[in-house]
Amino acid sequence: MSLIRTLTAKPWLEQTPEDLPALGRLPMPTARVGLVVFLAVVATLFALLVSAYVMRMSFGDWRPLPALPVLWLNTLVLALGSVALHLSVLGARRGKWTTTRLRFLFGGLCALAFLAGQLVAWRQLDTLGYFVAENPANTFFYLMTALHGLHILGGLVAWERTAVKLWSRSGAAGLQLSVELCATYWHFLLVVWLVLFGVLLADTQGLFVPHMHHGF
Rank of each mutant, 00 (worst) to 15 (best):
V199F: 11
G34A: 07
R56L: 00
G129F: 00
V37W: 00
L102A: 11
T30C: 01
R25D: 05
F104P: 05
F59Y: 14
L23W: 05
F114E: 02
P29Y: 11
F208Y: 15
A173E: 15
T100R: 03
T100I: 05
F106T: 02
M57I: 06
W122Q: 03
F131P: 02
L78P: 00
A183H: 04
A121T: 10
R25L: 01
K10I: 11
G108P: 00
K10N: 12
G117Y: 07
F59K: 08
L35F: 09
R161F: 10
A173P: 11
V37Y: 03
E160F: 15
A9S: 13
F106W: 10
A92W: 05
L166R: 06
V195G: 01
L128H: 08
L78V: 07
W62T: 11
G24L: 02
T98D: 10
V157I: 15
D61A: 08
L73G: 06
Q176D: 08
A116G: 13
G198M: 00
L175M: 06
N74D: 08
R93F: 03
G198S: 07
L3V: 15
S170E: 14
V50F: 05
T127N: 03
E14M: 12
F114A: 01
L48C: 09
D203F: 00
L200K: 13
A172R: 11
F141M: 03
L143Q: 00
A202S: 15
P64R: 06
S51I: 10
M55Q: 14
F106C: 02
L207W: 15
G24E: 01
